[in-house]
């Protein structure tokens, strides 16, 4: 291949522009946007473009990522205003661009595309997302048996990867930061609906509080953006029915407990 051929080949590679949100508190108090031009390969996702920028153009760009295959849940960002996993969003779907990349909405920005997760972690912990079973079997007593139907009841909610896209998409969380939010509520349901778990009553205090399911007005955006099809909106509505039955029962038949 001659030098001219190589140059022609390079020139023929299509490109696309990324407008990337930058915030470096030690440099500027206000955020700004940097525009980068990256190759537009069919097989490249947004994360590949960001890695290209970091490796080849500007090493100071900060963002979170790990697995590149939609499992770790750390590369969530806003692409043209929509919450996506950048490892699962292809560049070509945004052609001809430009693509505006911003940190996840509704969260405080720590640096560039990195947001603070403290609020979510605290809320996640509050709903007790673990099996609560004080009289659990000993190892000698053997395993718990569960039918496929019993598994189906909650297995969808186990798919959550804590990527927080649902919090960015939720307009209620944007307005009411105290709202426990979609993922934490869906994860609580994951344990509530598991037959091995007996924590339903314990969780209801927080789930059915004013900060819990009752903030939700069933906008449904959380389920739209969820990359794992967890359907938090459905989980919350389903829990509303249960909490409502429980409430009426406790008022009309207080002795039944």
């Amino acid at each position: 291949m001659t030098e001219t051929d190589i140059n022609t080949t390079i020139e023929e590679v299509a490109t696309i522009e990324l407008e990337v949100f930058r915030y470096r508190p030690e440099k500027a108090s206000a955020p700004s946007f940097d525009t980068f031009t990256v190759p537009l390969h069919d097989e490249w996702v947004l994360l590949d473009a960001l890695n290209h920028i970091k490796d080849e153009i500007d090493g100071s760009l900060s963002y979170r990522w790990s697995c590149r295959m939609g499992v770790c849940g750390s590369c969530g960002m806003m692409a043209n205003g929509e919450a996506v996993l950048t490892c699962a969003a292809f560049l070509k779907d945004y052609a001809p661009g430009p693509i505006r990349i911003e940190p996840l909405a509704n969260f405080p920005v720590a640096r560039d595309l990195i947001v603070g997760m403290d609020d979510f972690m605290e809320k996640l912990n509050r709903v007790k997302p673990w099996v609560i079973n004080e009289n659990g079997k000993s190892v000698e007593e053997g395993e718990y048996l569960q039918t496929p139907e019993e598994l189906d009841d909650y297995v969808q909610y186990t798919m959550c990867i804590n990527c927080m896209l649902c919090y960015s998409a939720c307009p209620i969380y944007g307005m009411e930061p105290s709202f426990i939010g979609p993922a934490a509520l869906a994860l609580a349901q994951r344990y509530n609906l598991d037959l091995r778990d007996h924590g339903n009553e314990e969780r209801m205090d927080i789930l059915s509080s004013d900060e819990g399911i009752w903030q939700c007005t069933f906008v449904g955006e959380c389920s739209e953006v969820c990359p794992k099809h967890v359907d938090p909106a459905g989980a919350i509505q389903r829990y509303k029915v249960e909490a409502t039955n429980n409430w009426w029962k406790s008022k009309l038949m207080p002795w039944s407990n």
């Binding site: 205090d205 927080i206 509080s209 004013d210 900060e211 009426w248």
Partner: peptide, 16 residues
């Protein structure tokens, strides 16, 4: 905080 809401009363009427 963490007190069970009385919202179910209104939500039941809303749902019905």
């Amino acid at each position: 905080m963490d007190k069970r809401s009385n919202e179910p009363f209104w939500w039941a009427l809303f749902g019905a």
